[in-house]
Design a protein around this nucleic acid. Structure first.
Lengths: 196, 196
DNA sequence: TTGCATAAACTACACCATGTTGATATACTG
DNA sequence: CAGTATATCAACATGGTGTAGTTTATGCAA
């Protein structure tokens, strides 16, 4: 059926339990190894009830991923307000802190056993951020030596790569330091910007 | 069982057929959607025979991936001989040409429907390359402003990101141009190198 | 508070992919 | 050419998926 009243307390409780169960299981053994029965067991929900809310485990994953990305957007929303050169570093910090708070989840989803769709979605999300930030930047020599899409992709993919490295190594550096280094890396890719 | 004489003509024929079938199917519908029967059908091999050679479809994938990476290594082997600054660009070209030759495969395996393990393996492989290249570089100010692992990860992840972009867009640029741009991006990340 | 409506639980089922077994036919190797 | 290894075939147990019908319980609105 898949059509339950979203307002109903029972519905909200069930979906929350399923979502939490999925997150916990992903952290424990990765998404691929999970079967619907696992999710139902963990959530203490009947397996049939699962199917009354989600088509399959991929459906649940998709919705959960979307929620994670929305959460991720919150700390960055303010970032777009004042894209002054130095403020960006400080605004990276809450972003990285969110990632750190859900460390195991991100490590799993972005790692070897991870989910390519999620990585791609996160990259797209970052690219969107970059695009908007660039738009609001003070007009300057737009005659970049490299095509913008290439530059953008290199930067976002590299950015994500470093975040992954950071998680894989169990965060050997404090958030502030990673933020600084990421900022510096991005800066080095923007030769049009005059060295202040 | 899984132990067949690798010298036997039948064995070689069977494994080749299975490997080719897998590659074709990956290009058609991605790895996840493939079932063993698909591979057997396409290879015109009995399904049971499949299991006499490979544990499961993941086993076959792993071996096939390894072969692809070995092929990929060939054009780069010479790269390590003379890591002079300008020669690197030229040596990137055969590498990109290999990727272009197996375009659909790489696009699938690295894309949204792709396989995170393969992406990670390819990244590791690239990191190894970078590491060796750096070792043979003429000693110079090793006092990089950034930790080497971070720099290396950013560069390789960004590199792969651009290659992915190139494939996703159906190769809007000729190989030479991509090679140049990638070279330039990497250069910009190496501030220790004096601008010649 | 009570009754109604709706969600959850439970039982049962058909379906499909997996991986294995034992018997038989086929074909490579030496 | 003979012997042995490999491929084929039919059959089966197992386990995960998704659905249907029925009963139980619980939240909601009057």
């Amino acid at each position: 059926m898949l059509n339950n009243a979203v307002g109903d307390l029972r519905t909200r409780r069930t979906r929350l339990a399923l979502r939490d169960a999925l997150l916990a299981l992903i952290e424990e053994k990765g998404f691929d190894a999970i079967i619907v029965q696992d999710i139902a067991d963990r959530a203490m929900i009947n397996r049939v009830t699962f199917y009354k809310h989600y088509r399959d485990k991929y459906d649940l994953l998709e919705q959960t991923m979307q929620e994670m990305l929305n959460e991720l957007s919150a700390p960055v929303a303010t970032l777009l307000q004042e894209p002054t050169n130095h403020a960006v570093v400080d605004k990276l910090v809450p972003w990285l802190e969110h990632v750190a708070a859900h460390e195991s989840f991100y490590r799993m989803m972005l790692g070897k056993e991870g989910n390519a769709a999620f990585a791609a979605q996160l990259r797209d999300y970052l690219e969107g951020m970059v695009e908007q930030t660039i738009k609001r930047m003070p007009r300057q020599s737009t005659t970049a030596t490299l095509p913008l899409p290439v530059l953008r992709r290199f930067a976002t993919a590299g950015f994500l790569g470093v975040v992954m490295w950071w998680l894989e190594q169990n965060r050997p550096l404090p958030v502030q330091q990673v933020a600084m280094q990421l900022h510096q890396l991005i800066q080095q890719l923007m030769p049009s910007r005059t060295q202040k």
